[in-house]
């Protein structure tokens, strides 16, 4: 009997303290930290863009924005996780164009339309980059050599992702044939390019230091105009190819997130991208701030999705 009461007392103590641990009911959104899923590892390009963004965003929504790197399976693990998250505005999804590609390549079932757009944040123009161990000084020499040796020039790429699509678009526009080799992520591609194990790859202006040191050559940039920081790099348009290819990064939330919550986030986002410190951070990332509000971002996503579907079909990579 005595032992029984000891147990009871213990249980009662446990329960009462458990009760004390629980917090009062929900208040105005956001009343606790917000998680932002970045579907790639820490230190990658996407991570480097959204970490400064999160710092600005939390100033304007009044709660910490915590980056959660959910890497793996070409970014689709993070996409699945974001889709499955509660639609309460406490899970944001930092996304880029890969979401369209992985869907059409049949890698994942998650589509851009499984989410509500909040805003477009930044766009990073792709740059066709050659190893210094190749003889080509410019596009004309590269194109001439590639014509002579179809299917022999190696291009490092994450298969079915932006780094694959971009060179493939050039391939089509210039009527060339490259040989693609699987290299997931910019860091391994740079390593292979420096060592001359691949000839070409897609990179961006963050690699400028290696170009200045003569280890890499920028062949062409896929933006509308030349970049003021790297004025020597010609655009693909100047070279006669109608290709503008920028990796567009934005924020989305799971479908069904209440409209007031979305409005709050959109407002915070609009203010965050206007911060001068954010502009400075993006400049260092070889990226331009490219804000679009939710409505325009939705249109943009629909347009990009259609374009990607066409490209994937042309390349024979489409599964759906």
């Amino acid at each position: 009997m005595a032992r029984m009461s000891v147990k009871m007392a213990g249980a009662a103590a446990l329960i009462s303290v458990l009760g004390a641990l629980s917090a009062p009911a929900m208040a105005q959104y956001p009343d606790r930290p917000v998680k932002m899923i970045v579907p790639w590892a820490a230190g990658g390009d996407t991570d480097n863009i959204f970490r400064p963004f999160a710092v600005e965003l939390q100033k304007h929504i009044g709660q910490p924005v915590v980056i959660a790197n959910v890497g793996g399976a070409s970014g689709t693990t993070g996409a699945r996780e974001a889709k499955a998250a509660a639609a309460d505005g406490y899970t944001l999804y930092a996304v880029h164009d890969y979401i369209h590609l992985t869907f059409y390549a049949g890698i994942s079932d998650v589509k851009y339309s499984d989410f509500e757009p909040i805003c477009l944040v930044a766009a990073t123009p792709s740059v066709l980059t050659a190893s210094s161990k190749t003889p080509w000084k410019n596009w004309a020499e590269l194109a001439e050599d590639a014509k002579k040796r179809p299917g022999e020039i190696t291009v490092g790429a994450t298969l079915g992702s932006t780094s694959h699509i971009f060179p493939a678009m050039i391939e089509k526009a210039a009527n060339l044939k490259f040989k693609f080799v699987s290299y997931d992520g910019l860091a391994p591609r740079m390593n292979a390019l420096l060592g001359g194990h691949i000839n070409l790859t897609d990179s961006n202006l963050t690699q400028k230091g290696k170009v200045e040191a003569g280890l890499l050559r920028y062949i062409a940039i896929a933006s509308e105009k030349r970049d003021p920081e790297s004025p020597d790099v010609p655009t693909l348009k100047e070279l006669g190819m109608n290709i503008v290819y920028e990796v567009a990064r934005g924020v989305m939330v799971p479908k069904g997130t209440p409209a007031p919550v979305r409005a709050k986030l959109e407002e915070g986002c609009a203010k965050a991208v206007k911060e001068p410190s954010f502009a400075q951070a993006m400049k260092l990332q070889g990226t331009r701030v490219a804000y679009l509000n939710a409505t325009d971002y939705a249109k943009f996503l629909a347009k990009i999705d259609g374009e990607n579907k066409v490209v994937m079909t042309d390349l024979g990579l489409i599964k759906k």
């Binding site: 032992r3 000891v6 147990k7 007392a9 213990g10 103590a13 446990l14 303290v17 641990l21």
Partner: peptide
Amino acid sequence: PQTARQWLVLAAIALGTG
């Protein structure tokens, strides 16, 4: 746990860890 004290220790460790 056999005694009230041991129960208390148990609860304290559980709460503390959490």
